[in-house]
Amino acid sequence: MIACVKTGEWLSGILGAEDAGMQLGILLREKWRLPKKTVHLLFQQKEVLLQGSPVAQHTVTEAGQEIRMRVCLPEPLGIEPVTGKLEVLYEDDHLLIVNKPAGLLLHPTEKAHRQTLDHLVSGYFLQQGIQAKVRHVHRLDQETSGAVLYAKHALSSALLDERLRLSLIKRTYLAFVHGRFTKKSGTINAPIGKDRHHPTRRRVSPGGDPAITHYQVINQYADAAKVECVLDTGRTHQIRVHLSYLGHPLLGDALYGGKPLGIARQALHAVNLQLVHPFGEKSIRVDCPLPEEMLRLERQLEG
């Protein structure tokens, strides 16, 4: 999609040669991949403008035309704002990437949960005057730390969700696991489903959802390893399940057979996030360094 500038409730940009000669409705739906319902409502409410005037879906585009869309309407935050420490790794008009500490829930799973990452992002939005619903694009387990992506308006959310579904958002994790690897790298393609013997645990199951994890051993220690993992899918507990399935549970991950050797929580961190920006096709790479407790663990293993 073209680079867009946010001005109040409107996004505006200039159509390029690659966007010319198409019916505008087709351009928005099929090339820019806006949701059909969103496109229908925008045209119905005369909130798509070319050169400052409302147009119909069948209008044929020309290079150099200014397009404006009213897609950034003020919204309630959707969750109670909480003021607290929030480490922002990247931000622009359309998206926000923050560092989630270990031990903090990403979003409330019960009414009693009043201190989650979503609550802190809501508080940040309130402080910054951002009138938008809090929308996380993907999730991390409570005891996993690292980079989390948020959308700052509904259209950005729809486009980022589509990129996530198509595996166009690359999420890289670092894990410290038990054991010695015989292969330095590989791909785990094993479906994941619920474990009917445990309320929260997952397991590799033929009837589960497709799940693909790519791994590479970064460092092999005496009886542990530092492993980089990249996800093609985003199943609950995916890395934890897949590495345990290989016989290499995460250090500190008691649910999947790991022991607390040098760390009291599962040794998993979302270290890197890469994506093509939904507005402008700019490549974004955000690094999130290992937290102190994992750096201490690394030093211990090296020693």
Score class of each variant (00 low, 15 high):
153 H>W: 11
286 V>Y: 11
207 G>T: 13
238 Q>D: 13
54 P>H: 08
126 L>G: 01
9 E>W: 06
5 V>Y: 01
199 P>K: 10
171 R>M: 11
200 T>C: 06
85 K>R: 14
18 E>T: 06
233 T>L: 13
3 A>T: 09
244 S>P: 12
193 G>R: 04
106 L>V: 15
101 P>Q: 08
246 L>F: 10
203 R>T: 11
240 R>G: 06
218 I>E: 15
255 L>C: 10
22 M>L: 07
95 L>E: 03
293 E>R: 05
68 R>Q: 15
96 L>D: 02
240 R>A: 08
53 S>G: 00
179 G>Y: 05
187 T>F: 01
12 S>Y: 01
239 I>M: 08
136 H>I: 14
228 E>L: 12
24 L>Q: 00
59 T>H: 01
285 R>N: 14
284 I>K: 04
236 T>Y: 09
2 I>K: 03
257 G>Q: 08
228 E>N: 08
160 L>H: 13
225 A>G: 09
44 Q>I: 00
279 F>N: 03
116 T>R: 02
184 K>F: 05
151 A>H: 09
200 T>G: 09
129 G>E: 07
46 K>H: 10
58 H>G: 00
262 G>C: 13
42 L>C: 00
149 L>P: 05
110 E>M: 13
145 S>E: 12
189 N>P: 01
207 G>C: 05
297 L>I: 01
2 I>N: 05
67 I>Q: 02
57 Q>Y: 04
70 R>W: 03
63 A>Y: 02
229 C>E: 06
80 E>A: 15
228 E>V: 04
38 T>R: 08
216 Q>A: 13
149 L>T: 06
116 T>V: 10
187 T>K: 12
286 V>R: 04
116 T>Y: 08
107 H>V: 05
166 L>G: 07
293 E>A: 09
195 D>N: 14
293 E>V: 11
